[in-house]
Design a protein around this nucleic acid. Structure first.
Lengths: 174, 174
DNA sequence: TGCCCCGTCAAACGACCGTTCGGGAATCGT
DNA sequence: ACGATTCCCGAACGGTCGTTTGACGGGGCA
C-alpha cells in the first residue's frame, strides 16, 4: 500500500498525472490493474492521498517550526531555509512532495484543488506577515510593497523544484 | 485560424494540454472536430504553434532589448522588467504566452521539448551573465553564488504567472 | 472439515480521445 | 457557365483509459 503511493508519486512527478495510467502504476508495483483496485478506490483518490501527504508534511516540517520563531527576520530566514530543504529532499519513502503537489493540481476536483491551494497559500501569508512586521519596525527598505515582495520570495523558493541538485544554499535573500 | 490559436491557448492554460480535447477547441471556435482538422494537422502541432509563438515573442520583446543594454546592472533590471511585463500581458491576440509554454511542455515530443527548454534557458543564462559581470566588477555582495542567484531571480519572475493582476512593479530585486 | 475473507487475476465495459474519410455546399478564377 | 478549390460536416475507426465483474487459490478460524 505504501509502495503504491511511492511509485505513483514518482510516476506522477515524472510523467504527469494524465500521462500516468493505472497500468503504469500497476506495472511499477507488480500487480494487474484490477489488483491495484483492491487497494485504491480511484485514480483521483490516489493523487489526493499523495498531495495531501505532501502538503501535510510541509505544514508540519516547514510552516510550524517557522511560525515558532519570534524575530520576523529570523522567522523569514527559517521559513525559506526549511522550505528549500523540504523541496530538495528526495526521500525514499515518498517522491519530492511539493513538486507532485504543485504540478499536478489539474487532476483534482475543483473543490479539493481549492482546498489544497488554500493550504499552500499559508506559505505566502506567513512570508507577507513577516515582511509586514519588518516594515512596521522600519527594518525594510523603504517603498517595498510587501505583497509583491512576498510573492517574489515565494516564487523564488517554489521554483527551486526545477533544478534541485547543488548543496550550496543561500539565506541571504532579502 | 488565428482564432483557433487564441482559443486553444486559452484552453490549454485553463485546463491543461491533456485536459483539453479537440472537441473543446472545436466548440470554442464554433466548428466540428473534423472541421478543425481542415486548419490544423494535429493537436501537437497546435500546441507547438502556440508554444513556439510564445517563446519567439519572448526572445523578440524581452531577450533582445535586454541584451542591448550595456551596463550589467541596467541590463538585469531591464530583463526583469520586460519579462514581467511580457508575462503579465494578457493580450487579445494570444493568451499569456509564458504560462502556456512553461506549463504544457508535457504534450511535446522529447525533441521539441528539449528545443523549447534550450530557448527558455536563455533567460537564465542572460541573468547569470549579468550577475557574473557585476561580481567581477565588485558590485555584488560578497559570497553570492551567481548560479544560485540567477536561478532565484528567474524563478521569482517565472512565478509571477500565478498571480498577475496588480500594477505595482519592483526592480529592487538584488 | 467447512467457511469466509484476502490478495490477485483475466476479461470485459463504456466512455472518450485524436484522427480519417467521403461527401456536400459555397466561393472563386477563368 | 463551369470546373477547381476551399471550407466544413456526419460518421466512423482504432486505440487507450479508468473502472467493474466474477472467479480462483490459499490461509486462518471454528
Amino acid at each position: 500500500m505504501v509502495q503504491i503511493r511511492v511509485e505513483a508519486s514518482r510516476l506522477f512527478v515524472e510523467k504527469g498525472y494524465d500521462g500516468t495510467s493505472m497500468q503504469d502504476i500497476a506495472d511499477a508495483v507488480g500487480l494487474t490493474k484490477a489488483g491495484l483496485y483492491h487497494f485504491v478506490d480511484s485514480k483521483e483518490e490516489l493523487l489526493f492521498l499523495i498531495v495531501d501527504a505532501g502538503v501535510g508534511r510541509m505544514e508540519r516540517e516547514v510552516l510550524e517550526p517557522a511560525r515558532a520563531v519570534k524575530d520576523p527576520r529570523e522567522r523569514l530566514a527559517t521559513l525559506i531555509r526549511l522550505h528549500v530543504e523540504n523541496i530538495s529532499r528526495v526521500e525514499s519513502d515518498v517522491g519530492n512532495p511539493v513538486t507532485s503537489v504543485v504540478e499536478n493540481l489539474v487532476g483534482l476536483s475543483d473543490q479539493k484543488r481549492a482546498e489544497v491551494n488554500a493550504r499552500l497559500r499559508q506559505v505566502f501569508e506567513l512570508t507577507r506577515g513577516a515582511l509586514d512586521e519588518l516594515k512596521a519596525q522600519g527594518r525594510l527598505t523603504e517603498g517595498v510593497d510587501t505583497t509583491v515582495a512576498a510573492f517574489s520570495i515565494t516564487g523564488m523558493v517554489m521554483w527551486t523544484n526545477r533544478w534541485r541538485r547543488p548543496g550550496g544554499r543561500l539565506s541571504s535573500a532579502d
